[in-house]
């Protein structure tokens, strides 16, 4: 096995050259290049993360914008609804008062008419009583030949009429 047989004569050279070339590689590649390569990777990762964050922020902004728009829209809708309701209520009230006024007028006319009818009936009644009393007096005068006091005739007619 040359590794063991040659060990004593090549050990110093092996160690020396390994340290030289490994050391050079470490200095040039390990310390010089690797941090730059990793820096590039980090830079890219950061850029991607930033871009993603910006996209997320834009999305959030759009969401909140939409939310605000929706809220405004809802408010407008509610306001419109309120205006409509108010107008409806006003119209209903106006028609109600108009109806009430008309009703009152009609009621009054009705009452006046009824009163007129009542008065007419009462005067007619009185006339009938008067006529009945005169007739009763005439009948009495013609049959009995006696003159009856008009007041007594009226009282007698009234009594008969009240009895039906």
């Amino acid at each position: 096995m040359p590794q063991i047989e040659q060990l004593s004569e090549v050990l110093s050279s092996q160690v020396f050259w390994l340290l030289v070339f490994f050391g050079l590689t470490f200095l040039v590649v390990g310390l010089g290049m690797v941090p730059k390569v990793m820096g590039t990777v980090d830079l890219r990762d950061r850029q991607i993360a930033d871009d993603l964050a910006a996209a997320q922020a834009a999305r959030d902004a759009a969401d909140s914008e939409e939310e605000a728009w929706r809220k405004r829209e809802n408010e407008n809708r509610a306001a419109a609804q309120a205006v409509i309701a108010e107008a409806k209520a006003k119209a209903a009230k106006a028609s109600e008062t108009k109806l009430a006024k008309a009703q009152a007028k009609l009621d009054k006319q009705l009452a006046e008419a009824e009163a007129g009818i009542d008065a007419a009936r009462a005067s007619a009644m009185a006339e009938i009583e008067g006529v009945a009393a005169d007739a009763a007096r005439d009948i009495v005068a013609r049959i009995a030949g006696t003159e009856v006091e008009s007041a007594a005739a009226e009282a007698a007619v009234k009594e008969v009429m009240a009895h039906g």
């Binding site: 004569e9 090549v10 110093s12 050279s13 092996q14 020396f16 050259w17 070339f21």
Partner: peptide, 9 residues
């Protein structure tokens, strides 16, 4: 301390 440039090196 031999530092011969060998095939290994």
């Amino acid at each position: 301390f031999n530092i011969a440039f060998t095939n290994s090196a």
